[in-house]
Structures are given as C-alpha cells and as structure tokens.
Deep mutational scan, measured.
Amino acid sequence: IRCIGVSNRDFVEGMSGGTWVDVVLEHGGCVTVMAQDKPTVDIELVTTTVSNMAEVRSYCYEASISDMASDSRCPTQGEAYLDKQSDTQYVCKRTLVDRGWGNGCGLFGKGSLVTCAKFTCSKKMTGKSIQPENLEYRIMLSVHGSQHSGMIVNDTGYETDENRAKVEVTPNSPRAEATLGGFGSLGLDCEPRTGLDFSDLYYLTMNNKHWLVHKEWFHDIPLPWHAGADTGTPHWNNKEALVEFKDAHAKRQTVVVLGSQEGAVHTALAGALEAEMDGAKGKLFSGHLKCRLKMDKLRLKGVSYSLCTAAFTFTKVPAETLHGTVTVEVQYAGTDGPCKIPVQMAVDMQTLTPVGRLITANPVITESTENSKMMLELDPPFGDSYIVIGVGDKKITHHWHRSGSTIGKAFEATVRGAKRMAVLGDTAWDFGSVGGVFNSLGKGIHQIFGAAFKSLFGGMSWFSQILIGTLLVWLGLNTKNGSISLTCLALGGVMIFLSTAVSA
C-alpha cells in the first residue's frame, strides 16, 4: 500500500470489461488503480535517471590570480610587451599612462603600459546536455494484498515479495511487465516523455548541487567559461569578468580578483528545477510519464477462499488518510488461513446495510499462523458509518465519521480527471477507425466523469442509474429551450454510458 502517505494521489477506475487503462505517473504523486474483478494496485514513479550526459560548457565562479607582471614604455618608444601576453592562462590589459620627467621619461606624453596576471579557477559549475534516449524511469508497484503497516513504502525485498514489484522503462524499451506472483502480471506500455523539453534544458552542477536550467539563461551567464570537458589546462574565455584592473600608474597597475560568485548564482537559480546525482547518473524529480496498463493477466487472489471465522482485533486505531479513506490494521487469532476477511461498512448496526467501498479488493489472510496481521483500506461514505470486521458474535466494529460532501468530492474528481486527460493529450485517442474513435470517446468520458459518477451514484443499482439517464434524455427531447435540451441530452447520455461502463 504505497499511496496512503502521498498527498498527491489519483484514483483511476477501469471500465467494466476493459483490459487496459491509461494513467499519468508523476514525481511526488501516486496512482491507485481499481477495476472490477482485479486486485487494487498502487503505482508510483520513484526516480527518473539520466546517463551519458555530455559537458557543454563550464563557468568559473571563484578564481585566484598570481605571478603579476607589468612592462611600460616612454612616449615614442613603441608598445610595451610581455611574453605572458601569448599565454592563455594569463589575463592581460594594455593601456596608456601619462609619462614625463617625473617618472623617468625625457618627453612628456602618453606611454604604453601592459599588465598580466595568471588566472586560476578555484571553483566552477558545469552544464551538461541531456539526450531523451538516455532517460530511465523506475516504477514501483504494490498490490493491496496481505501486507501490514511495516511494509508500507518499503522498497527492500521486492524481489521475493509477490505484493510488490519494480520495473524500469526507457525510450528504447518502453514496454515492461511486472510479475506479482499469485496476482498474475501487469503489463506497462509507457510513452517516455517527461513533459520537459530537454532540447531547451541543461543539467547544471555547482558545488555538489544540481538544477535543470534553460539553455539561453545558461549561455548568457557573465562569467569566465570554457567549452567542452575539462582537459586539465582549460582555456578560459572572458577571464576579465572576475578580474579587475585598478587605476594605472606610470610603471605598474594593481590587479585584484573578485570574490566568489556562488551567492549571486544561487539567487539567479531561484525557482529552477532541482535535481540530484546518483553516482555518474543524474536524478530528476520533475515531469511525468504516461503509461497504458494492460490488466488482462491480472487476477484476484483468494476468490475461492472461505470466510475467516475466528476473532479479529484492531492492532491500531483506524486512521484517516490524506485522501479521506480509512486504513485499518487487524490481527487474526485463527489458524484456518488462508481465508477471506469479512469486512464491510454499514450505516447502522441493526440492518448492516453496506455503504462505501473497499479500496483493498478481496482482502485475505494468507498465513495459517496465529496472530497474522493484515492492513486494508476503505472508502467510507460522508457522515457517520460503522466499520464491521468478522462474522457472528466475534465481529468487531468501529464508529467512523467522514466530513465533507459527495458533491465536493465529485467536483474534485472531475477536475482531476480533466487534468489527466489534458496530460494524456492525443495519445488517449485513436482515429484509425470508426470503432477506435468511439472507443476513445468512451475512454475520455470515463477518465473525466467516472470518479464523479461513482461518488454521486455508486450506491444505486445499474438499472436505477439507466432509468435516471433515460429520464434526462426524455426531458431533453421534450424541452423547447435549446440549451436546457442539449444539457439534459448530454447528461442523460453520459449517465447511461457510465452506468453500463463503470464497474460497481
């Protein structure tokens, strides 16, 4: 259960009878995928790494000078000259100064003066180019299975845990398959586009800190620079940016070097996208990844198990997540596992009318040892309800109150669905055939309105939902006002479609 501690969480529900669903994975976010007769899966884009970055340009932001020398000439005696002028490691300046009897010249006039100092770069920052084909995306998957609280967001041991898996995709191999043991396998067909235009970005490294910066900004930095990788004795261009020549006297000129420019660069980098280094690879934390999940090989585990009949206890007080759902960790005293956990939410304890829904599909106890633990997640209705676990006299209950409203949740879900469709863009549509167009249209309606429909009408039977949709269509056909007619027709059509397409 990876997503319960992530604030940016998206719930995606598969269409009834569908074998695939489109998701948008982004750094700092987590996606929970639910479908009829399929286990619930949490998917998170953990890291995006980039390798084989080529150094484009380096800037010196802290330097020192040494070996200063000057040469001067009297008027009419030609130009002052130093051998160091031809050495690229030196920074030199030529000027004219007033000369006369007082400073060793027989004539009054302008004399030539040249001053040089050896330039040494102490600290530099480097910009590297990123090729999209060198990106690698690491995705962690977790099935809502027989897990306890100690396994949440624990990325170790996934090789031997059938509840978890790690997959890596690249532009050259965008397809992967996550093996989930008894739950089958989940196929991923990803489109490795981060949403960032790397043709316009460089990877900047300064003092063990890293950013993504725009090329134009990078090339306009007014500091000494050299092109390409460091060859040991780089040729620094624009050395004068960190060196200041003071007022010249008759035979000498003082040279000083400016202080470190790291603070000024940090100020200019305010708002830039931060990154990290992992050995020789860069780690990015921006952008998104679009994936199509193929769920035809994914299956529920323990459908044929019998119900657990022994007593359950709450190991922890049920807690609310950031998303309005409830996490419950229970301990089973029996030894008759594997068995299914009898769990439901009810409005009252007399009729036990089921409300809400299970995020953890078909929760089971897989071990036959005593005191096995299991964590599950529920989506309670707004208002008061009861969490009921167990059967008969051994069942345990917990009162729950959820604040908020169904309308607010439906609106929030619609906005999130619209954002998801905007990110998917043209990849969500198939114009290759008439059937493809209608299929894409259905998927689009489901992406945007599916979660809201589930919130508003999830407790009704599909037949009642179709009746309401048919009534809206009838009202649309018999209303003389054009805008009201079109609105009723659209709402009725969407409702009829979703009542037959969205899983219960």
Rank of each mutant, 00 (worst) to 15 (best):
124 K>T: 11
65 I>Q: 02
183 F>E: 08
202 Y>C: 13
239 K>H: 08
370 E>C: 06
101 W>P: 02
84 K>E: 07
430 D>G: 04
401 H>P: 03
16 S>F: 02
425 G>L: 01
143 V>Y: 09
231 T>D: 13
75 P>K: 07
243 V>C: 15
426 D>C: 06
200 D>A: 13
308 C>R: 08
59 Y>D: 07
178 A>K: 08
296 D>R: 01
419 K>P: 08
330 V>N: 08
381 P>W: 06
24 V>W: 10
189 D>E: 14
348 D>C: 00
159 E>W: 06
453 F>W: 11
301 K>R: 15
393 D>Y: 14
289 L>A: 02
442 G>S: 05
160 T>M: 07
99 R>Q: 08
451 A>R: 03
140 M>C: 00
234 P>C: 01
463 F>K: 00
461 S>A: 04
468 I>V: 13
142 S>C: 03
327 T>P: 08
440 S>T: 11
432 G>F: 05
148 H>W: 09
236 W>R: 11
445 I>V: 14
97 V>A: 11
444 G>S: 13
395 K>G: 00
93 K>D: 07
140 M>H: 14
7 S>H: 00
342 P>G: 04
372 S>L: 06
206 M>Q: 05
289 L>W: 08
194 T>G: 00
111 G>D: 07
89 Q>Y: 09
70 S>Y: 07
377 E>F: 05
233 T>K: 14
164 R>H: 14
94 R>P: 00
453 F>Y: 13
438 F>N: 01
462 W>H: 11
374 M>D: 02
184 G>M: 12
168 E>N: 01
379 D>H: 05
434 V>I: 14
138 R>G: 05
312 F>Y: 10
447 Q>S: 13
344 Q>R: 09
439 N>M: 04
464 S>P: 10
350 Q>E: 05
447 Q>P: 00
119 F>P: 06
441 L>Q: 11
249 H>Q: 07
410 A>D: 07
51 S>P: 00
5 G>M: 10
116 C>Q: 08
103 N>D: 11
485 S>R: 02
490 A>T: 11
100 G>L: 02
169 V>E: 03
371 N>E: 12
15 M>R: 03
369 T>G: 13
240 E>D: 09
456 L>W: 07
200 D>V: 01
33 V>K: 04
396 I>Y: 00
366 T>R: 06
398 H>R: 13
150 G>S: 01
25 L>N: 08
164 R>I: 08
487 T>F: 05
172 N>I: 06
249 H>T: 03
77 Q>A: 10
278 D>G: 11
378 L>H: 09
425 G>F: 10
438 F>W: 03
198 F>P: 02
162 E>A: 15
253 Q>N: 07
8 N>I: 04
129 S>C: 09
289 L>S: 07
262 E>F: 09
291 C>L: 01
428 A>I: 03
46 V>H: 04
81 Y>R: 05
425 G>S: 02
305 Y>D: 05
247 D>L: 05
19 T>W: 10
454 K>F: 11
224 P>V: 05
283 K>C: 00
384 D>F: 12
150 G>C: 01
204 L>Q: 10
191 E>T: 04
418 A>H: 08
293 L>C: 02
344 Q>W: 03
209 K>C: 08
502 V>P: 13
44 E>T: 02
168 E>I: 09
220 D>G: 12
472 L>V: 14
447 Q>C: 15
256 V>Q: 15
284 L>P: 09
432 G>I: 00
493 G>A: 15
336 D>F: 13
381 P>F: 06
451 A>D: 11
336 D>I: 11
98 D>A: 07
354 P>T: 14
344 Q>F: 03
466 I>G: 01
71 D>L: 13
277 M>L: 14
32 T>L: 00
261 Q>D: 11
476 G>Q: 07
65 I>R: 00
464 S>W: 14
185 S>D: 07
3 C>S: 07
213 V>C: 08
353 T>G: 14
368 S>K: 00
59 Y>W: 10
23 V>Y: 05
7 S>W: 00
452 A>C: 12
281 K>C: 00
343 V>D: 02
15 M>Q: 04
210 H>W: 12
249 H>K: 09
59 Y>F: 15
405 S>E: 03
260 S>C: 09
